[in-house]
Write a protein that binds this DNA or RNA. Structure first.
Length: 446
DNA sequence: GTGTCGTCGCGGACTCATTT
DNA sequence: AAATGAGTCCGCGACGACAC
């Protein structure tokens, strides 16, 4: 599939070879195009002249004029394909292209163009030269050349209307605007040519509002299985597998891998948390992104030292086994929130508050010493947790409840020695958080 | 229908760069 | 050096989606 830039009467066109894709009774086209040109051409709101087309239609249908007028009015007001540009997302895509060695976008940008078909018998250059002033500056031309279909799209703003892929293109645009690198970056286009706006609008609706987002657990699974970088997701993916498959783990047969209860699970099974959920919560214990949070990346040191990474999962197992031995409702996720998502998220936060304290007070800022902690030691630290009543917390949304459960747990655990969580928190922020944070920051420098 | 999960959006805090 | 402001992140609460 070739693409080239050509000039006809001082106007530049992007000439693309296109391939017809027939699906059922209709067809669209795919093309390969240089991103550097496309970013100059795309828009997400329909061009002005389309509205005029609708207006013409109205005058021919006088009887129903009022009806049509209403449609036109709503069409004019409604910014059709314009979604608010999410700047954060655009910047993320820009950085992805800039920094990632394998910065692929293998899926197509879905778009539409307004075009005129030029008959095979005519010379297209002459045709365009003759018509160029009569046609809109954004009009494209469809031609046949050497038995292949091609399209000539004017290299001008708004000649391509994007239905899906706005953020990818905005990201590419940002990349080109902020970089002198002349990289080759081809993108795939799915081109809808010659369809009524109503059809396009329908496609837009289906793509953007009806398409289900990918199950996050599957996404994490794929990243873990196929990415060869030992990044945060990969390691946590391996951890969750280990936690689910290792028979001494408190999470043995508890984790819904791929977000689903496995087929053939017994009645009364204990699959109570999803893999994605657990990864989302645990990532905060290893990610440098959490360094400014009150919930510190308590395992950052072990995460950064490859041969110590296993200590993270060992600690997690010891910690939750301690919880398990103190509270018998760990075994009954059907009736208790403790070993369900919210309970576990709250326990992880307790862990993130506990570790900095013992690290400083008991283990003399020595991460090696923390490794030697036993399940019994943790049980002693968590004494009091067995009396915390969790029944008031079911039946509500998650994020708020997680916080409330955490408060109840902290207030109940004797070691923390506070019957008032907010007092504990302010004390923690003064005495432990700054020291631990500094220590974590130091790890990143080395 | 009920209970739980998971995401969205908001407010506040913090950071960093630029201006005064 | 202080003030201002843009950008970003975090935690919380609300709510829609989904499973049972």
């Amino acid at each position: 599939m070739n693409s080239q830039v050509i000039k006809i009467k001082d106007k530049e066109f992007l000439k693309l070879e296109i391939e017809k894709i027939i699906q059922k009774d209709n067809a669209f086209y795919i093309a390969k195009a240089p991103a550097r040109e496309i970013v100059k051409m795309f828009t997400v709101s329909p061009a002005e002249y389309d509205i005029k087309k609708y207006s013409d239609l109205v005058s021919k249908n006088d009887d129903e004029q009022e009806y049509y007028n209403k449609i036109i009015d709503s069409k004019k007001k409604q910014v059709n394909f314009q979604r608010t540009k999410d700047k954060t997302r655009v910047n993320k895509i820009r950085d992805y292209i800039k920094n990632n060695e394998y910065a692929f976008f293998p899926n197509t940008i879905i778009c539409t163009i307004d075009s005129i078909l030029i008959d095979k018998t005519q010379d297209y250059k002459t045709f365009i030269e003759n018509n160029i002033n009569r046609e809109s500056s954004t009009t494209s031309y469809l031609i046949d050349e050497n038995k292949t279909k091609k399209v000539l799209i004017p290299i001008i703003e708004k000649s391509i209307l994007v239905i899906d892929g706005q953020h990818r293109l905005e990201g590419l645009k940002e990349f080109y605007n902020n970089s002198n690198e002349e990289i080759q970056y081809d993108i795939l286009l799915s081109l809808f040519i010659g369809f009524d706006r109503a059809i396009i609008a329908q496609q837009f609706y289906i793509i953007n509002y009806e398409q289900k987002p990918v199950n996050k657990s599957i996404l994490y699974h794929l990243m873990g299985e196929f990415s060869d970088e030992i990044d945060e997701i990969t390691i946590l993916h391996n951890f969750t597998r280990l936690l689910n498959e290792f028979d001494k783990s408190p999470f043995y047969n508890r984790i819904k891998m791929l977000g689903k209860v496995p087929k053939g699970a017994s009645r009364g099974h204990k699959y109570s948390i999803s893999q994605a959920f657990l990864i989302d919560e645990l990532i905060k214990t290893i990610s440098k992104k959490s360094i400014n949070s009150i919930y510190q990346p308590i395992f950052l040191y072990y995460f950064l030292n490859k041969n110590l990474q296993i200590e993270i999962v060992k600690f997690i197992i010891k910690f939750f086994n301690a919880v398990k031995s103190l509270r018998n409702d760990w075994e009954t996720p059907q009736t208790s929130i403790l070993s369900k998502g919210m309970g576990i998220a709250a326990l992880i936060r307790v862990m993130q508050l506990l570790v900095p304290i013992i690290f400083i007070d008991k283990y003399e800022n020595n991460p090696q010493k923390l490794i030697s902690i036993s399940q019994k030691d943790i049980e002693l630290l968590l004494t009091g947790i067995e009396s915390v009543d969790l029944s008031p917390f079911s039946g509500q949304g998650s994020a708020g409840s997680i916080s409330k459960i955490k408060v109840a747990l902290i207030e109940g655990i004797h070691f923390f020695n506070y019957s008032n969580y907010s007092k504990f928190e302010s004390e923690f922020k003064i005495t432990y958080l700054p020291k631990f944070k500094e220590w974590n920051k130091l790890l990143l420098k080395n």
